[in-house]
Design a protein around this nucleic acid. Sequence first.
DNA 1: ACTTTTAGTGTGTATATGCACACAAGGGGG
DNA 2: CCCCCTTGTGTGCATATACACACTAAAAGT
Lengths: 139, 139
Amino acid sequence: MEEDDFSLCVLDNARKAARAVSRHYDKLARQVGMTAGQFSVLVAIRQVRARTTADLADRLSMDRTTLIRNVALLERDGLVVSALAGDGKAKCFCVTERGEALLQTALPLWRKAQTDVEDLLGTEEFLKTINALQRLSQL
Amino acid sequence: MEEDDFSLCVLDNARKAARAVSRHYDKLARQVGMTAGQFSVLVAIRQVRARTTADLADRLSMDRTTLIRNVALLERDGLVVSALAGDGKAKCFCVTERGEALLQTALPLWRKAQTDVEDLLGTEEFLKTINALQRLSQL
DNA sequence: ACTTTTAGTGTGTATATGCACACAAGGGGG
DNA sequence: CCCCCTTGTGTGCATATACACACTAAAAGT
């Protein structure tokens, strides 16, 4: 056990980083009445008109059932509507006008958060870090 | 909005990475009846004999109240005991024999998980990634 | 036509996370 | 002595996360 260096534990470091980042983005997102996670899902729905929830979950690298509950909160707040697709099985989601408006007020805050990180790391390191995170996601 | 590149969103990428890493480590940890997070806390308690919960939470970059509930689960399972320190306010934690035994069975799995990541990234990139995660934690 | 497979949705349970808040004890001023 | 401040602990609430499981409907096999 003595030869184990837990300061190199990927789990610890990944979760610490995610917690720190989430806290930072969350503080900003809550200024406009959402959580950081809700912002992420809202952007994802807006960008990719996913055909199924499983499809959307894949793109977010999130468990499908986690996504379902996240979207349910967005629907509750009137930011998103869901509808059954023609075939009667699949479900599709759309951002409402209110959701779109909220996104617009949130965007400047998101940009600030991004530049906060860029300022902390420097532009070059920023891009390398994003790349490292993307490679970890493939695990 | 068109100029925003959400594929560079630090929040998304950090959370995706943390979810992927957590899933990987969790699969292994559950083979010996714990979650990955519980393993982390157990190791932390063992390594640093923190004087207070706030102290321990700081080292894990975790909210103090989150830690309290995590430790409560460890106590419930008999892996950790807590005791009030002499001054009557602070609390200290110790890993029990059972907790130590469980740690020993979990360690080979942890080492495997670490080398899995190292194999995915390569040794040099592995160390750079850990470093990037640590810098993100400072946010 | 009936059965099986497949692709999709949703629920139950357990854990994790953190903010707001309340509570408790010791230590100084007044 | 009492008030207040600091330093601890713990709870309530809301959200996030994911595994196991159940349900539904189209599609395909025989």
